[in-house]
């Protein structure tokens, strides 16, 4: 009962925050709504028995990605001092583009809903959500998933160097 209440509550939190991002005109408000959406998704991870993934989600997305996105929003502002304060971070949505977005998004949702409701999954394994998943994830990462783990490490290094190069070297022509 408590589990169902928490599940539906956090689902509504995540979806309502996502809808707020969709309809918000102010990008800073959208970024803060994304924070609540990430928190709701992390709570869904906990309810699905993935405790380590929930903490990783909060640390990586809320602690890293969202701060980066907010800095990106603030660094790409136009400095128009004479306008009113509510006009900053304003994102205009063309009518045609908005119509296409709603048609494509709604159509995709109806399509996925039809597939999910018509599917019939036969689950083979037993569900045991009582114990922590950290030991299993650590052992699997160091044994059978060692190559993807190393590739992910190299990818992070490449992304770090590439992002630093792109952001620092502002004008390579000079």
């Amino acid at each position: 009962m408590i589990e169902a209440t928490a599940f539906y509550g956090f689902s509504i939190l995540a979806i309502a925050s996502a809808l707020f991002i969709l309809f918000s005109k102010n990008l800073i408000y959208a970024a803060f709504a994304l924070f609540f959406s990430f928190l709701g998704v992390a709570a869904l991870y906990v309810l699905a028995g993935a405790d380590f993934l929930a903490v990783t989600q909060i640390m990586v997305y809320v602690g890293g990605v969202l701060v980066l996105l907010i800095f990106g929003i603030m660094l790409t502002q136009k400095a128009n001092r004479n306008e009113d304060s509510s006009a900053h971070n304003r994102v205009d949505v063309l009518i045609k583009r908005g119509a296409w977005g709603f048609v494509l998004g709604g159509g995709l949702f109806v399509f996925l809903l039809k597939i999910i409701l018509s599917s019939d999954f036969k689950m083979a394994g037993e569900t045991n959500n009582s114990k922590s998943t950290i030991r299993t994830i650590g052992v699997e990462l160091m044994t059978s998933h060692l190559l993807p783990f190393e590739i992910a490490a190299v990818l992070l290094l490449v992304a770090l160097i590439g992002a630093a190069y792109l952001a620092i070297n502002r004008n390579p022509a000079q």
Binding site: S11, I21, V91, L104, G105, L108, I116
Partner: peptide, 24 residues
């Protein structure tokens, strides 16, 4: 729930006229 979030994210990426909005 995942399908709803995916569709909303897709609509955001299509409708926003801002690079960072698309990234959200």
């Amino acid at each position: 729930v995942a399908a709803a979030l995916f569709s909303i994210g897709f609509a955001i990426a299509v409708t926003k006229r801002h690079f960072i909005g698309m990234l959200l």
